[in-house]
């Protein structure tokens, strides 16, 4: 239906996440371009929220830095407009339901289409509440991404059956953040997903090293990395773009090397 499919056509997909406006929008633009140039297949653009209940301390910190820098939904829309002059890979927004709802769902989702956003990831919008935005997402051709968690169990088939774009497989219990080990049986979750849909699935939460990315993407169609990238941005600030680019390259290479 939209560009998202193409993200999974270059081997396993590497999907980095960045919080827009951390530390400022100029840096976000440079980071996104560096990630795209170094092998990112799809980029998740976080619209910061004051109270991100699914995030660990690292991404919470990015949200606070971005909001205290004065970033708003409108400014992020403008960032995407300018990125879209040269960035061709799929882009998805990651934010919280209230950011979309409060802006006016139709105004928000129609703007996504207009500026070239392909997907919308809302961690506080489970399957049961998808009707809040799904009809508008379908109307404007924006994929409403479904999440599947280690606790989903009997719900996996139901969610997979109606999924669009790609499926975000949450690797671990808890909030976002780097983990030494991922103990969930990703393989068996993916098996149930595959029995129910042809839509690709990527694993996120807790992935930071090339080894983890290779391992998780071997079990699925891709790997999503957030906190590890935010850490780089936290460390290098306005100069972080080349470091993020280098990191993305190492992750994508490790995933491609995996047979």
């Amino acid at each position: 239906m939209n560009r998202i499919k193409s993200a999974f056509e270059n081997g396993k997909a590497f999907i980095p996440f960045v919080t827009c406006g951390d530390p400022d929008l100029e840096t976000t633009a440079k980071v996104v371009r560096a990630a795209a140039a170094n092998g990112a297949d799809l980029i998740e653009l976080g619209i910061p929220f004051s109270d991100p209940t699914a995030e660990g301390p690292v991404i919470q910190g990015a949200n606070i830095r971005a909001l205290s820098g004065g970033v708003t939904t409108d400014k992020i829309f403008n960032l995407v407009r300018s990125l879209r002059t040269d960035v061709k890979i799929p882009l998805a927004f990651m934010t919280y339901a209230n950011v979309v709802f409060s802006y006016g769902a139709e105004r928000f989702i129609s703007t996504c289409r207009e500026i070239g956003i392909d997907g919308l990831i809302l961690p506080d919008l489970p399957f049961e509440e998808r009707e809040e935005f799904l009809p508008l997402c379908r109307k404007y051709g924006v994929a409403l991404i479904s999440l599947i968690a280690p606790t989903s169990e009997n719900r996996i088939a139901m969610i997979a059956n109606e999924a669009e774009g790609f499926i975000y497989v949450v690797s671990s219990l808890g909030v976002t953040g780097m983990r030494n080990e991922i103990n969930t049986d990703i393989g068996s979750i993916v098996k149930v997903i595959r029995e129910n849909t042809d839509i690709p699935c990527a694993v996120g939460f807790g992935i930071s090293t090339p080894e983890q990315a290779a391992k998780m993407s071997a079990l699925s169609d891709g790997a999503i990395v957030g906190s590890a990238i935010i850490k780089i941005i936290e460390k290098y600030g306005r100069d972080s773009a080349p470091y993020v680019g280098e990191y993305v390259k190492s992750m994508k290479e490790a995933m491609l090397a995996q047979k």
């Binding site: 209940t53 699914a54 339901a97 961690p123 506080d124 919008l125 489970p126 399957f127 049961e128 509440e129 009707e131 809040e132 999440l147 599947i148 968690a149 280690p150 606790t151 989903s152 169990e153 009997n154 719900r155 969610i159 949450v170 219990l173 808890g174």
Partner: peptide, 24 residues
Amino acid sequence: MSSSRGRFGIHGGQYIPETLMNAV
């Protein structure tokens, strides 16, 4: 408009991460 469980008029619902759905 959502019509999920636990509504009081238009209010209420279950806007939580998938991880918590089976718990509720």
